[in-house]
Amino acid sequence: MEILNFQFPSSKVKARRAHVGVVGSGDLEILMEPSIDDATHVTIQTSVTGFGDTWKAVLERFLGQHPEAASIEINDFGATPGTVALRLQQAVEESQS
């Protein structure tokens, strides 16, 4: 298991609370909340070690499309980058509904 922390500069748009996913094989859980400041904070607990660069790339791409100031907590059980991207997208949709 590995714990990763990322911080990204972000916009003034505050994210809203959303919870999606499950910590099951090949899947992940995302807890999204408004950020305490203007930055986006991401904490990842992942069962697979050594993929920090991949996580950073997936998150950068996501935040490029959705520049919301969010506090994101991820509990990952071996999801592929594609699954991670879809779950992040789902969290945004959930927070807007």
Partner: peptide, 10 residues
């Protein structure tokens, strides 16, 4: 679970 290196669920 974290003490045993296992990811938790919220």
């Amino acid at each position: 679970l974290p003490m045993q290196g296992i990811v938790t669920q919220s």
